[in-house]
């Protein structure tokens, strides 16, 4: 350890006086010099390194290219007098009158995603804890298989099912039940008549679609918590549930965080199922029973008509750009939180 540290510090001392360009050049040349001097296994290793660097760099490049392309396509709306950056909070979308407020879609997407995350994360983690800590081994394997199968169902199938089950359920049972109940009827988020096509329906079907991801990934994280941590907890007199909640959950939190990151991305990015059940009405939802329009739906529904109208088209690309920025933002925030969680747990 010490020796290594010494030698690196000596290296940096040697390099200090040199010019920056020569340093960069040397850094670029080093792999080739190493390659020339290496023996056969060394050369194979070199090719492996390059071979793996290509996909890693490619994905970075793809993200950058997509961002540039979206920016390029949506620049007209952001720079024109009809649009401008204000469209991000603009509540009215009416291309016929040159009103391109996309705030309504952002609000719709966030509302659906919030419902979905709010339900899917706690339920999914609960399910994962059950699978990993309580479920007998014999039952765990088939249950996991079912969960993984759920993740593979195409979203349009979920949408069809939601249209036939969730939407009528909200219209005929859930809405009348809460609106006739004196405990809930006064709450603002339960107001308004509904035909079932609503934020709530979108949020619920998203919840069902996210659940398998959350359960499967969290379950993996929980199962990889070493047995000896559980034993240490039991040996202090903890019960099974105390151990599951305070030790296993806490130790697996970074992994569970990763599950949440993945589902966040899917929650705002999911298209078909949500499009089919949210009613696609251009209004900011104030109640769970209000219909709404999400970002992905507006792009899918209008891109075909909009192609010949430059501003309209550009506004749709702007929606896409903001969607991408939102998911990048969510992912980075979650990653920072995960990183912090791993630090406090001594994993890094």
């Amino acid at each position: 350890m010490n020796q290594e540290a010494d030698s690196t510090s000596m290296n940096t001392m040697d390099e200090k006086p040199k010019h920056l360009m020569t340093m960069i050049l040397e850094k670029l040349k080093r792999p080739f010099i190493e390659f020339r001097d290496a023996d056969t296994p060394g050369r194979i290793d070199f090719f492996g390194r390059i071979g793996l660097a290509i996909p890693a760099l490619a994905s970075t490049l793809v993200i950058i290219l997509i961002l540039t392309f979206l920016w390029y396509e949506s620049a007209p709306i952001f720079t024109s007098p009809e649009g401008g950056p204000g469209i991000i909070i603009g509540p009215t979308w009416d291309p016929n009158r040159n009103l391109y407020g996309i705030g309504v879609f952002i609000a719709g997407s966030l509302a659906c995603a919030a419902i979905a995350i709010g339900l899917a994360v706690p339920l999914g983690i609960g399910g994962a804890i059950f699978l990993s800590e309580y479920c007998p081994n014999r039952l765990r394997v088939p249950l996991r298989m079912i969960v993984e199968m759920m993740a593979a169902i195409p979203s349009i199938v979920y949408g069809l099912w939601a249209l036939l089950v969730i939407v009528p359920f909200i219209e005929k049972s859930f809405a009348p039940a809460v609106q006739n109940n004196i405990l809930f009827s006064w709450m603002p988020w339960f107001q308004g008549s509904t035909n079932g096509l609503s934020v709530l329906a979108g949020g619920l079907i998203l919840t069902i679609m996210l659940l398998p991801t959350v359960v499967a990934i969290s379950n993996d994280a929980l199962q990889s918590v070493p047995m000896n941590l559980r034993e240490a907890s039991y040996a202090l007199g903890a019960t099974r549930s105390e151990t599951a909640r305070r030790i296993v959950m806490s130790a697996a939190l970074p992994g569970i965080g990763a599950a949440v990151v993945l589902s966040l991305g899917r929650a705002v990015g999911e298209t078909m199922a949500v499009l089919m059940v949210t009613g696609n009405s251009l209004q900011v939802p104030y109640s769970l029973f209000d219909p709404t329009y999400v970002m992905t739906s507006i792009i899918t529904n209008q891109l075909g008509y909009a192609f010949i109208f430059p501003l309209w088209r550009s506004a749709l690309f702007a929606v896409g750009l903001i969607l991408l920025i939102m998911s990048i933002f969510f992912t980075i925030t979650a990653k920072i939180l995960i990183r912090w969680g791993m630090k406090t747990r001594g994993y890094v």
């Binding site: 070493p226 000896n228 941590l229 034993e231 240490a232 907890s233 040996a235 202090l236 007199g237 030790i247 806490s250 130790a251 406090t344 747990r345 001594g346 994993y347």
Partner: peptide, 14 residues
């Protein structure tokens, strides 16, 4: 009331 120390150190990740 019976404490235990294990073969491999197993501090909790906290």
């Amino acid at each position: 009331r019976i404490g235990m120390v294990f073969q491999k150190p197993n501090p909790f990740p906290m």
